[in-house]
Design a protein around this nucleic acid. Structure first.
Lengths: 220, 220
DNA sequence: CAGCATCCGCTTTGATACTG
DNA sequence: CAGTATCAAAGCGGATGCTG
C-alpha cells in the first residue's frame, strides 16, 4: 500500500477555501469534535463516537488530518499500550470553528428525527454555551445530568456555566431522561413541569435549575 | 423534473453534525461566502466567484440551501430584471462560522500554490481581522488596494480596521501588486521595503501603512 | 445571455469481510 | 485493537444542450 493520493483542493487563494481543503471532507470535522470534546482517543473510541463511519474512511481521514498537522498519533505508555490520537495545538485552534458551528446548529435539534444516534459528549460543551448563571454571587452549583451513554455535570465556575463528562460527589440536583427532553429543558423550550410531564426525572431543589437561564438570542 | 433526492445526513443528535448536514456539502459554504462578502448576487455572479464549480452542482446547492432556509431567491425589480440570491437572517448568522474558519485558514495562504484562482473579495473581510489601528485617536485613514479583479479599500473606523470592495475619493495611500505580496505585507510577513523589492507598488506616506499593525497571535 | 437540466466518466463514500 | 481489501452506490466535474 502506498499513499500518494493527490488531494482534491478548491484551488482558490482564499483563507476559507484553504480551511475547507483541510477539514472540509466528510467526517473530518466530526473526528476533530471527538478529540476536542473527549481528549486523546484510541482508534476504537473515535469510531464509537462516529456511528455510521466506514472504518476505511476513518483510517483515511486520520492519515489526512495527521498529514495536515491537525492531529498527531502517539504511542501511549503502558498500561494503555496502544496508539492514541491527539489534537496538535493547531488542531486545538479549531475550537472556535466548532463552537460557532455548534451554536448555529443547536436550534436544528428542535425537529431532529427521533432515531438519531446520540452520545452524551456531543452535547455537553455546546449546551453550556447557551446557559448563564443568574446569581453568580451565590455558592457554585453542580447538576448531574444522566442522558445518553455517559453521565455529565453542568456546573457554575465563577459566573460561567460549564458542562463536562463525569460525575460529582454530591450534586445539588440530578436530571435524567431522554436527550430531547433534557435538551429542550436546558435551552428553555420546556419548563420543568412540562419536561416532567414528558418523562423527565428531577431530584433536588427546583431553585437550583432555575438559577441557570438560557441566554437571549445573539447574546452568546 | 422532480426533486425527491434523499438528503444524506449523519443521523446524529449533535448540533455540529446538524450544521454539517446543512452546509457540509462541497461548495456550500463557499456559496455562503459569496453572498456574505458580496451581498445579493445573480446566478452568474456566484458562478464567477466559484471558479471550478460545475453549473449543475451550483443549481443543486442553491436549491438545497434555499430548502434549508439559508438563502432565498427574489425577483429583482428593473433595471436588474433577474432573480437575485440573498442570505436569509438565518444565513447571515453563519458569519461567525465563516470568520472563525477564515481566521484559521489565513496562515495556510503562506505556502499556497501560485496558480490558485483569486478574487479580491475573498480576501477583503478576512484580512481586516488581522489588522489593528495603532493610533486610533488620529484622523481616520483609507488605503486603496489594487490586487486581483476589483479595487478594495482598507480603512479605519473608530479604532477598528475594515476592508471592503470599492474605491474612495482621495485615498491616503495606494497599494498595488500581486495578491501574495499584498497579503504578506498586510499580515506582516514582509515589510514595505521587502515587498517593494518583490514587485509591490506603493504611493503615499509610509507612515499611513505603518499605522496598521498585524495583531499578535491569539489576540484576534 | 441567465438559469438551469442531461448525460457521461471518474472519484469518493458506504457496507462488509478479512487480517496481523 | 487497529486497521486493510473489496465492491457497489452515490457524488462530483466537465461538456453540452435546452428554454425564456
Amino acid at each position: 500500500m502506498w499513499y500518494d493520493a493527490v488531494m482534491r483542493t478548491y484551488g482558490q487563494y482564499c483563507p476559507l477555501a484553504k480551511t475547507l481543503d483541510v477539514i472540509g471532507d466528510r467526517w473530518s470535522l466530526l473526528i476533530v469534535r471527538e478529540l476536542l470534546f473527549r481528549g486523546p482517543c484510541r482508534y476504537t473510541d473515535i469510531r464509537n463516537g462516529l456511528p455510521g463511519i466506514a472504518t476505511n474512511l476513518l483510517a483515511d481521514r486520520l492519515r489526512d488530518l495527521e498529514q495536515a498537522g491537525v492531529i498527531r498519533r502517539e504511542a501511549a505508555p503502558p498500561p494503555v499500550a496502544t496508539t492514541l490520537f491527539h489534537l496538535t495545538p493547531r488542531g486545538e485552534e479549531l475550537r472556535s470553528v466548532l463552537r460557532a458551528m455548534a451554536q448555529w446548529g443547536l436550534p436544528l435539534l428542535g425537529d431532529a428525527p427521533g432515531d438519531d444516534a446520540f452520545r452524551s459528549h456531543w452535547l455537553a460543551p455546546p449546551a453550556a454555551i447557551y446557559l448563564s448563571d443568574t446569581t453568580p454571587d451565590r455558592p457554585p452549583i453542580a447538576i448531574e445530568v444522566r442522558t445518553g451513554d455517559e453521565p455529565m455535570v453542568i456546573e457554575t465556575v465563577d459566573g460561567a456555566v460549564r458542562a463536562r463528562l463525569g460525575a460529582v460527589e454530591r450534586p445539588d440536583a440530578v436530571l435524567a431522561g431522554p436527550p430531547r427532553i433534557v435538551i429542550d429543558l436546558i435551552i428553555g423550550k420546556l419548563d420543568l413541569a412540562e419536561a416532567r410531564a414528558r418523562g423527565l426525572r428531577y431530584e433536588g431543589d427546583p431553585e437550583v435549575l432555575g438559577r441557570l437561564q438560557p441566554r437571549a438570542i445573539g447574546e452568546v
